[in-house]
């Protein structure tokens, strides 16, 4: 009889173990919080901002894909912690915090990609935030819009004074995804379980960076090519660390 009980109990133990092993949780949480800004000011839809060339700009929209998030360990090694895609959207607060499980809590930097890697651009219709219904996909020239900045400016000569920067392109010489590295000044070891990194994303960099892009000259970018690549070079520098907690 004892034997039967032992068998039954071990069966129970096995199944419960089986369940818990399926839900192994990493010990820590990494929170990336994106603060969308324009020249250091918080982004608010329909508010007016000014770029480095004195051009005024009423903001309508700001969205970008984040993916391939890695943490940089003390020894310099990169440790990929998520293969998922995130669409950070100025108009959606919940999209601005990315929460990921990590098993390390001692690292010296962060790497992620702004954009969608080329494989996802050639593999048919995707789901989730990559669903083309999210409005970040060019249907006539297959490929993702990596990032969008939209508004209205008196300096724009386009119809309705629109400023529309839809930046995409993944083919040779047209690439617009960018790898972003944010290094911490010192190694951070955390006491608690939640590791929060605040990141500023300042859209003023789209105009004033390696390339000087004036609204008066270039109000519209709607296709892959030279202008999109220049905007991408500029937005690769829009991120900065705001704080680590």
């Amino acid at each position: 009889m004892k034997k039967i009980i032992i068998i039954l109990l071990s069966g129970f133990l096995f199944t419960s173990f089986h369940h818990s092993s399926r839900f192994v949780k990493a010990k820590h949480k990494l929170q990336l919080v994106f603060h969308n800004q324009f020249s250091g000011k918080e982004m608010i839809a329909d508010s007016s901002y000014q770029n480095a060339f004195g051009e005024n700009f009423i903001l309508k929209g700001f969205r970008y894909y984040i993916s391939n998030i890695s943490v940089k360990e003390k020894n310099g090694r990169l440790h990929n912690i998520s293969a998922k895609y995130f669409l950070v959207d100025m108009a959606d607060d919940s999209s601005q915090t990315i929460e990921l499980a990590i098993d390390k809590k001692d690292f010296i930097g962060l790497q992620f990609m702004l954009g969608v890697d080329s494989l996802r651009n050639i593999s048919g219709t995707q789901t989730g935030v990559l669903d083309p219904a999210r409005g970040m996909f060019w249907t006539w020239n297959s490929g993702y819009i990596m990032a969008k900045l939209e508004g209205i400016s008196g300096d724009s000569k386009a119809n309705s004074h629109l400023v529309t920067y839809h930046v995409g392109g993944f083919k040779k010489d047209q690439q617009t995804n960018r790898v972003i590295n944010l290094n911490f000044i010192e190694s951070h070891e955390l006491a608690g379980n939640i590791f929060r990194v605040d990141i500023n994303a300042d859209a003023a960099a789209w105009f004033n960076g390696e390339h000087k892009i004036k609204i008066a000259e270039y109000p519209i970018c709607h296709s892959p090519g030279a202008l999109a690549v220049q905007l991408a070079d500029n937005y690769s520098k829009m991120f900065s660390l705001a704080g680590i907690r």
Partner: peptide, 16 residues
Amino acid sequence: GGINHLDLQPLAPMTA
């Protein structure tokens, strides 16, 4: 040749 996958083709006429 702008569309690189059959699955993506219907999206163009639907939205044009």
